[in-house]
Design a protein around this nucleic acid. Structure first.
Lengths: 155, 155
DNA sequence: ATGATATATGGTAATAAAGGTCTTATATTT
DNA sequence: AAATATAAGACCTTTATTACCATATATCAT
C-alpha cells in the first residue's frame, strides 16, 4: 500500500527526539512519555535502531540512547532497513538477486515484462530514500518537550 | 512496508499488455491467460481501471478493453489511485485535510513533530509517481504474446 | 551486596490489510 | 435464445501489522 509502517514512524519520531537532545542520554521511557506512546513499542524500536548502529545504547541505571552518527548521515533508507530488517522493495521480484524471476507475480513462461521498468522505479525510490536524512526532521518550528513541564489542558 | 500491492502490479502488467495491442479490443481472459493469472483477479483490476477512466470497456460478446488515454498520460500515480481508491499516503496524517493531526501516530498534545518533513517527503513521492507513465513500461526487449502460439518447454 | 533503573529479547494475541474465489447480474453479439 | 464478456459484491484465507506481556541481563547508587 506504499505506506511507512508505524514502527518506521516511531523510529523517525524517536530519532528526531534524540537528535534534538544533542548528546544527552535519553531513556526509552522519556521518549515514550513525550510522544504519548507505549514504552514497550518505543523500547523495541530503539533496540532495532541500536542493533543496526544508528544509535548507541547504554544499559543500566542512568542509561539510555544517543545518536551514533550525525543526523545528516542517517538516511530514511537506513531507518527503514534497520526497522524492517531489509531494504524497501516495491515488488518482490526486484531484489537484485532474482535472475530467474522466481518471485514475479506474473507466472509467464517467458521473462517478467515489468521487471526492467520496475528496477528503474526501485532505483529512483532508493535514491529518494537515501537523500532524505534525520537532519531534514530537525529544526521543526513547533517542538515541545513535555517531560520538562506539567501539561495543563484548557477547557 | 512500502510495497506495491499485487493488484497494482497486475494493473501495470495489464495496461502494458493492452498498450502493446494498440487499439485492438482485448478481453480480460486473454490477459489473464497471457500472464498466467486468474481471470477473476484480472477482471476485477480491469474493472477498476475502467471505472476510473484509464481504459475503456466494451461489454458483450467480442467486447473487451482498450486504452482510453495515451500511455504517456497514464501515470503510476493514476494507476495506484484507481486501484486503491485513493492516492498513496506514506503516513496517515499527511492527508492534506487533517489540520488537527487527528490521524497522527504520536498522541502528543502539541502538534505532530514530523508532519512538516513528512509532507515534503510525500510531495517528492507524488512527483516521482506522477513522472512515471505506462510509456515507461512499453518497448521492453523481451515480450511474448502467448495467446498467439502454443508454448513448448524444452527439457 | 542489594535494590533501583534501564536495555535486550522472545513470545503471543488481536486487529487490519491483502489476496483470491465464487456467485449473480447485466450488456452485446451472433 | 445462446454465447460471450463485463459489472459488482459477498465471502474466505492468508499474511502483515500492532500492541502487549514476560523474563533476562546490564549498570549505577547506596
Amino acid at each position: 500500500m506504499l505506506r511507512f509502517t508505524k514502527k518506521t514512524e516511531y523510529a523517525l519520531l524517536s530519532l528526531q527526539y534524540i537528535a534534538n537532545k544533542e548528546g544527552i542520554l535519553v531513556p526509552a521511557k522519556e521518549i515514550a512519555d513525550a510522544l504519548g506512546l507505549s514504552f514497550e513499542i518505543i523500547a523495541k524500536v530503539l533496540h532495532l535502531l541500536g542493533k543496526n548502529g544508528l544509535i548507541q545504547s547504554i544499559q543500566g541505571a542512568q542509561g539510555g540512547y544517543l545518536l551514533n552518527i550525525e543526523p545528516k548521515k542517517i538516511s530514511l533508507s537506513d531507518v527503514i532497513t534497520a526497522i524492517e530488517g531489509k531494504p524497501s522493495q516495491l515488488v518482490e521480484c526486484v531484489s537484485g538477486d532474482d535472475p530467474d524471476d522466481t518471485n514475479c507475480s506474473c507466472t509467464v513462461y517467458s521473462n517478467c515484462t515489468i521487471k526492467d521498468p520496475m528496477t528503474i522505479i526501485q532505483k529512483k525510490m532508493d535514491e529518494m530514500l537515501q537523500s532524505i536524512t534525520i537532519q531534514d526532521f530537525l529544526n521543526t518550528p513547533i517542538y515541545h518537550t513535555l517531560s520538562d513541564s506539567s501539561v495543563t489542558i484548557d477547557l
